[in-house]
Deep mutational scan, measured.
Amino acid sequence: MQGVVKVNSALNMRSGPGSNYGVIGTLRNNDKVEIIKEVDGWYEIRFNGKVGSASKSYITIVN
Rank of each mutant, 00 (worst) to 15 (best):
L11S: 05
V39G: 04
P17Q: 04
V62H: 08
R28L: 11
G16F: 01
A10V: 15
G52H: 02
S19L: 15
G49E: 07
D40V: 06
I24V: 11
R14S: 07
R28I: 09
G25Y: 08
R14G: 06
S53G: 08
V39H: 10
I59T: 00
V39T: 11
I36C: 07
N63A: 13
L27K: 00
S53W: 15
I61D: 02
M13C: 12
D31N: 05
S19W: 15
N30T: 04
T60N: 11
D40W: 07
G52N: 03
I45N: 00
M13I: 15
I24F: 01
G22M: 13
D31L: 04
A54L: 08
G25M: 11
R14N: 07
A54C: 13
I24S: 03
I24L: 06
Q2G: 06
S15K: 09
E44I: 15
Q2T: 13
V7P: 02
N48A: 11
G3S: 02
S55D: 15
K56Q: 06
S9E: 12
K50S: 08
S55R: 15
T60Q: 14
N63M: 12
I36E: 02
N63P: 12
K50V: 14
S53L: 13
K32D: 03
S19G: 10
N29Q: 07
I61M: 09
N63I: 11
N63Y: 12
G52T: 02
N12R: 12
N8T: 13
L11M: 10
R46P: 00
V5S: 01
K37W: 07
K50G: 06
M13S: 01
I35C: 05
V39M: 10
E44C: 15
I35Q: 01
R14T: 09
Y43M: 04
L27S: 00
G22F: 09
G49S: 06
S55N: 14
F47G: 01
V33F: 05
Y21K: 03
V4N: 03
R46A: 09
R28W: 08
G49P: 01
N8A: 13
V5Y: 02
V5I: 07
E34C: 13
E44P: 00
K50T: 12
Y21P: 02
L27T: 01
N30F: 08
G49K: 04
V23N: 03
N20Q: 14
F47W: 10
I24W: 02
I35Y: 00
S57Y: 14
E44A: 05
V33L: 05
T26K: 12
G16C: 08
I35E: 00
R46M: 12
G41I: 04
G49Y: 04
K50Y: 09
G52P: 01
L27A: 02
D31S: 07
E34N: 06
S53N: 14
N48L: 09
I61S: 04
D31F: 06
Y43A: 01
S9H: 14
G52M: 03
V51Y: 10
V4C: 12
A54N: 02
I35P: 00
M1D: 06
G3E: 02
V4L: 11
V23W: 05
V39Q: 10
V5F: 02
E38Q: 07
R14I: 07
N20Y: 10
N30W: 07
I36M: 10
M1E: 07
L11C: 15
K32L: 14
A54R: 00
V7Q: 03
I36V: 09
V5G: 05
K56G: 06
A54Q: 02
R28K: 13
E38G: 03
V23I: 13
V4D: 02
N48V: 04
V39F: 10
P17G: 04
M13Y: 07
K50N: 09
S19T: 14
G22H: 13
G52V: 04
K6I: 11
S53V: 12
V23E: 04
A10R: 13
V7W: 05
I24Q: 02
A10P: 12
I61A: 06
I36K: 02
K37R: 14
N48K: 12
I24Y: 00
I24A: 04
V62M: 11
N8M: 11
N63W: 11
L27V: 04
L11P: 03
V7I: 10
Y58D: 10
I59P: 01
A10K: 13
S9Y: 13
N30E: 09
N8S: 13
E38K: 03
N30V: 01
N29M: 09
Y43H: 00
D40Q: 09
S53A: 14
I45Q: 00
I61R: 06
S15N: 09
I45A: 00
I35M: 02
N8C: 15
K50W: 08
E44F: 11
Y43E: 00
E44Y: 10
K32V: 15
G52C: 06
L27H: 01
A10N: 11
G25P: 01
E34A: 07
V39C: 10
V51Q: 09
K6P: 01
M13P: 02
N63R: 11
I61P: 09
R28M: 12
N20W: 13
S9M: 10
I35A: 00
M1T: 11
G18I: 00
T26F: 11
K50Q: 12
K6V: 12
N8H: 13
F47M: 05
K32F: 12
S9T: 13
I61T: 07
I59G: 00
G25Q: 09
G25W: 08
Y58M: 07
E44S: 06
M1G: 07
A54T: 07
V39K: 08
V7H: 10
K32Q: 11
L11I: 15
G41W: 05
I35N: 00
G3W: 05
E38V: 08
F47P: 00
K32I: 15
K56M: 11
G16I: 01
I45Y: 00
D31I: 05
G41P: 01
I24E: 03
S19I: 14
L27I: 05
G41Q: 07
E34G: 04
G22Y: 09
W42G: 01
S55A: 12
G3Q: 01
K32Y: 12
N63V: 12
L27C: 05
V62P: 07
P17T: 04
M13V: 15
K56W: 03
F47L: 05
K56L: 06
D40T: 06
G41D: 10
I59E: 01
V23C: 08
E34F: 11
G18K: 02
A54S: 05
Y58G: 13
P17I: 04
R28A: 10
N29I: 06
M1A: 10
Q2A: 10
G16V: 01
R14Y: 15
N48C: 10
G16N: 03
K37P: 01
V62E: 10
S9L: 11
V51P: 05
P17Y: 03
K50E: 07
S9N: 12
G16S: 03
Y43I: 03
S57A: 14
